[in-house]
Design a protein around this nucleic acid. Structure first.
Lengths: 198, 198
DNA sequence: GCCACTTGACTGACTGGTTAGTAAGCACGC
DNA sequence: GCGTGCTTACTAACCAGTCAGTCAAGTGGC
């Protein structure tokens, strides 16, 4: 398949997903967004499931690339992580719709090993990012002593909670972000990083 | 409608929901669990939506009653709350399946004002329970000073997160419970309550 | 330069299956 | 005999996936 075609289908899937939600996402609607026929979609992807699997991989790869931060300062790495999680993707004006669709996917994870695996990989990546930064920050004397894995798990759990609340209660995530940052300050006794993020 | 009939339909809905999940919950499956025909359901409830609205009310009323705790000791009230949230309902051996279905409902909240309203009411109830206990605990000198609303919001957010993780990652909620209790100890400087929960 | 053929991308019409909701009629207690 | 509670049989809509065929862009032989 053409790279250009692939990208167009991924974009169409994303738009159809945001417009109609995961539960009402049909191959017809993806095809409509794409501007081609439903049969053309089945020409490139045998089943709807295969298409969605590809889409999810595409999505998580993009998100993981946003988590990457090479800074040597663990305080900067932690700040960048929180930014990456809470800031909407560039040029994506339906980040709210996307959050909705993502929660629908999370809710379907018990019925699909594919989804579960992808989400588990993403979760591990997030926890490792936080735990690594906390560990390095303690070692460097920036943070007070704490269990890095516990802090990471708690922070990511709170992020998961903020996600549900944004979707199910239509609550702005900014409140949750403030509380999570407050928790990090208390738990780690953070001194503010003076470096600018790389 | 008969009270007995109502209860039977609610139980059937609950079972069908746990067995098939929310996305695959059909009137036929509810009718099968009930032991009557699909048309009999439509005799009592005009639409599927009306039935589900009734079911959700039934469900949240039951959960709210579990949150009720009359103890005068705020430490006991807080413990009871955490117990109520994390302990599975009595005689409910598919609490995991129910958690799955509940997340599916949360994910559908953006598309249904009914669901959103019910979930918002439940959330407020939970936050008030925690905030009230924290406020009283501080006043009574059991807890160190902290913003009761902030603590409540953070705890409930973490509980929301634990819920997603249980469903999407198949993670036991016990780990999250430990972290939340640890947070409460740190944030409030809790001294253990010696009373037994009422 | 032209013809026969292949290949990749695609379309429109269709199939089989599933769904919420409806219609018409039946049993039974009062 | 009449309403309440129910059944069987149906409908209209919608869905994923299939299929036969179209079209354009090659490819090789001569």
């Amino acid at each position: 398949m053409n790279d250009e075609t692939r990208e167009a289908v991924m974009t169409a899937t994303h738009r159809a997903l945001c417009t109609h939600g995961f539960a009402d996402l049909t191959t017809q609607r993806i095809a409509d967004e794409w501007g081609k026929s439903k049969a053309a979609l089945h020409y490139h992807y045998d089943t709807k499931e295969e298409l969605l699997r590809t889409f999810l991989d595409h999505l998580l790869a993009k998100f993981e690339s946003r988590l990457a931060c090479e800074s040597a300062d663990p305080r900067v790495r932690l700040d960048t992580f929180v930014d990456a999680v809470f800031a909407p993707v560039e040029a994506d004006d339906d980040s709210r719709e996307f959050a909705v669709a993502l929660l629908e996917i999370k809710a379907q994870a018990p019925y699909s090993e594919t989804y579960r695996d992808r989400l588990a990989a993403l979760d591990e990546r997030m926890r490792e990012t936080v735990a690594g930064a906390v560990r390095d920050g303690i070692e460097a004397g920036h943070f007070r002593h704490a269990d890095p894995d516990d802090v990471a798990r708690f922070v990511v759990t709170a992020i998961n909670g903020a996600h549900v609340r944004e979707v199910a209660l239509d609550e702005s995530p900014s409140e949750a972000r403030r509380l999570i940052e407050g928790y990090l300050d208390d738990a780690l006794g953070r001194d503010p990083a003076t470096e600018v993020p790389a």
